[in-house]
Amino acid sequence: MTDPASSSPATYRLAVVNAGISDPSSTKLLADRIANAVGDIAAERGHRVRVHSIDLRELLPELPAALSSGLLGERFAAAVDALRGADGVIAGAPVYKAAPSALFSSFFQVLDNDLLIAKPILLAATAGTARHALVADEQMRSLFAYLRSLSVPTSVFASTEDWQDKALKGRIDRAAFELLLLMESGFEREVRDSGWRRYQHEYGSAGGSELSIDLDTDLMRLATGGALRPEGSIDDADD
């Protein structure tokens, strides 16, 4: 684990999820530029960033099993491990038909609901036209809200014409700085250490790391011969 915000040098782990289909793709290009910016800004602040790339294209062969049976193949499992261990994530999707690509959405739909809780996430999207500019904020942001991740305020969208525009670099740097600050803050670690039980979990969730079992619940008391409280009282089935 890395140090929270402090002046002492730290190494941060950054997972870069890219749903671009070709290699190279403009989505990968954008995600990598953002990752480099995070690294540069970290260096200025005396820190280091280790990048782990997750190219979803390579997970395509395992996707049918994951979608239909919840069975994660080796590559999926490796991606889950990388996400779990990351201090921050860049999530980049191409926009197809006015939505993040199905590969992008499928990947995050397969993950355990609690895998990315409090994790800083930078949203990035590419498209052929500026008409898709709000996809990152209107669709991707709600996905990560459901996952209770910490999306950075600035999302980065690049349509074809943006690649010639210096303003893109400005947005990249701004978003990268926001992401780095959230990674440095130790917010996620604090949530996991002190607030984890406030979220709903399943046994074996959070990518297999959620292994604690609370024996002090109404259901556990019922399992061991106890009775349920009358209907309507709090703490019915779960929290």
């Binding site: 395992e62 049918p64 099993a65 979608l67 239909s68 049976s69 069975l71 193949g73």
Partner: peptide
């Protein structure tokens, strides 16, 4: 599980 994972994967 049909129409999902391959026999080899499963």
């Amino acid at each position: 599980y049909g129409h999902g994972p391959s026999l080899e994967e499963f």
